[in-house]
Nucleic acid binder design. Sequence first.
DNA 1: CCTACAAGTTAACCTTGGCTAAAATATTAG
DNA 2: CTAATATTTTAGCCAAGGTTAACTTGTAGG
Lengths: 160, 160
Amino acid sequence: MTDSSNDVTPDRLCKADALPPSDQHAQQYVAVRNAHETELLEDYVELIAHLLKHQGEARSTDIAARMGVSQATVSKTVTRLKALGLVSSKPYRSLFLTEKGEAMAAMSHQRHAIVLQFLRALGVSDRTARIDAEGMEHHVSQETLDIMQRYTREQERRSS
Amino acid sequence: MTDSSNDVTPDRLCKADALPPSDQHAQQYVAVRNAHETELLEDYVELIAHLLKHQGEARSTDIAARMGVSQATVSKTVTRLKALGLVSSKPYRSLFLTEKGEAMAAMSHQRHAIVLQFLRALGVSDRTARIDAEGMEHHVSQETLDIMQRYTREQERRSS
DNA sequence: CCTACAAGTTAACCTTGGCTAAAATATTAG
DNA sequence: CTAATATTTTAGCCAAGGTTAACTTGTAGG
Ligand SMILES: [Mn+2]
Ligand SMILES: [Mn+2]
Ligand SMILES: [Mn+2]
Ligand SMILES: [Mn+2]
């Protein structure tokens, strides 16, 4: 027997804490695990694109310094990027992006920029915004990106 | 020998696109890698706390279903949680949180809730907000959390 | 009390993404 | 041109997190 007449408050208290149904909940974690799979690849191609554009070439040693990892780690990851058709290079030479790599870099960079600018527009300090954006960017859906972009533009309009 | 920190490029053109100095940039990635180390642990203890509170007990099989992984995976991760002093249990029995586990669960849950409510306040749909929050939560600094919370409260005040 | 079935564990395997140390290659100085 | 130095690659190691298959343990029905 369910008494629906006096569970108004309990329902509201519970509602906020309730988890979605099991299968929907599981899909949340699946989405996160999927994001983790491409996260590092995105950061690499984004960085390589930046180095190509601003330094003229993308060297492993620069990537290692920027990413805060050893050169051996870069070498191994680059092997994977090449296997995935995102990067091309000759042994012991600097790196280039394939068409596919450039496309991923462009997407990643744009998304990264939207998140970073949104955080700054919200009032987060530059340093913190950069740190948070570096991680958050890989978990922001298109729907949320659109809303962030609208907010940022609105904010910029107001302060001009 | 290439100077990685060369600033030959004109300031005006570069400014919006410029990366932070190499060591600061590296620290961004270090922060993300650190977050990744605790991410799964946080999700587990948060889920266990929820099950204990709302179901009375936390069974491996429920966790597996909610997380979308196999029971074997849960078993192995729980072994790690126990080794870290976050969870306690007897073989073949259901799970409990240690003091330390409860503390982590409380922090994680609060942070998760702040991010989720913020996304909803921004106008993101419930379904998307839940997915994004599941990943974003682990990469949001205290500074940003505070700002998100303020924004959400302001939004709630307006629409009441 | 036994027996089926549900739940939990273990073993063997895989990929990712880190590391250090050593080897190979490229570049630069003399 | 050669020797020193810088860069890149390779080999061998490790932990995290996932899988399937097989085994162990717990529990509920007849
Ligand atoms: Mn990025
Ligand atoms: Mn990133
Ligand atoms: Mn969470
Ligand atoms: Mn999460």
